[in-house]
């Protein structure tokens, strides 16, 4: 028994199909509870007023946006090294999810920045890095869409993901060098002296758990869809050949 058994598409679908409704349901539950808790039951922070409530969307989506790309990078590496189709399709499935998360992080950040910093958009390193990350997601998805042959598309997008990761990291450092920012430091830190007060912390953790579950559910779902679509296409071709 090894983890590579799940690289078999049939096995992958059989294993994940029962998990998907649970993950999806859990995600909805956590997000609804976390957001209601955060929205209605937490006090306003001194410095932020009621805008502090935006944190329950901003931080989890930003986390998923970054970790989604890392997951795609790992999946691309697995595809390039071990040639498991499920891995390539999982990377493809994750990209739109990560892209939407980046968009949410950017939007909530802009809306939050408006009253706090007096501007919708500042060329702050963190904001700029996320904008660049969004462009990378965009290019990655566009490349998948542009290539008809699935294996070729998987290869090319994987290489793009690797090269893109290096340049995304470089851009991050370049951007920090280029402009010191307005954005506060990391919100989450294990050091309780630093991280935000417990009233905000607990619902935030619930929201983060919800977003993680949502990401897992969506990626599993979309990977399943991609596997089936590929199989359908293969069957179609078979039928055409039989008819000819």
């Amino acid at each position: 028994m090894s983890i590579w058994e799940y690289a078999n598409p049939k096995k992958f679908i059989a294993t994940t199909a029962p998990v998907i409704p649970w993950a999806f349901g859990g995600a909805i539950l956590c997000i609804v509870v976390g957001l209601i808790w955060g929205f209605f039951l937490t006090p306003d922070a001194d410095r932020f007023g009621s805008t502090v409530k935006i944190i329950y969307l901003h931080v989890p989506s930003a986390m998923i946006a970054i970790n989604g790309w890392i997951m795609m990078l790992v999946a691309s590496l697995i595809w390039l090294i071990r040639r498991h189709h499920v891995s390539a399709l999982a990377a493809k499935a994750a990209a739109p999810v990560g892209m939407v998360m980046t968009l949410i992080a950017l939007w909530t950040g802009a809306v939050w920045g408006q009253p706090m910093w007096g501007t919708w958009w500042a060329w702050d390193p963190r904001l700029t890095s996320f904008l660049i990350l969004f462009l990378f997601y965009l290019g990655y998805v566009a490349l998948w869409e542009a290539i008809p042959d699935p294996d070729q598309a998987a290869d090319l997008t994987s290489v793009l993901c690797l090269v893109g990761s290096v340049f995304a990291l470089l851009s991050r450092y370049a951007v920090y060098f280029w402009n010191q920012g307005l954005h506060q430091g990391a919100t989450l830190s294990m050091d309780s002296e630093q991280h935000i007060a417990d009233v905000f912390w607990v619902p935030l953790v619930v929201c983060i758990a919800g977003f993680i579950l949502l990401f897992v559910a969506l990626v599993l779902m979309r990977t399943g869809t991609e596997i089936r679509l590929r199989r359908l296409r293969a069957l179609e071709r078979q039928a055409q050949r039989a008819a000819a």
Binding site: I132, L135, F136, G139, L143, L160, G164, S171
Partner: peptide
């Protein structure tokens, strides 16, 4: 679309 994001660090 693919190349422009890769140009960011060089440009900066």
């Amino acid at each position: 679309l693919l190349v422009l994001p890769l140009y960011v660090p060089t440009l900066i």
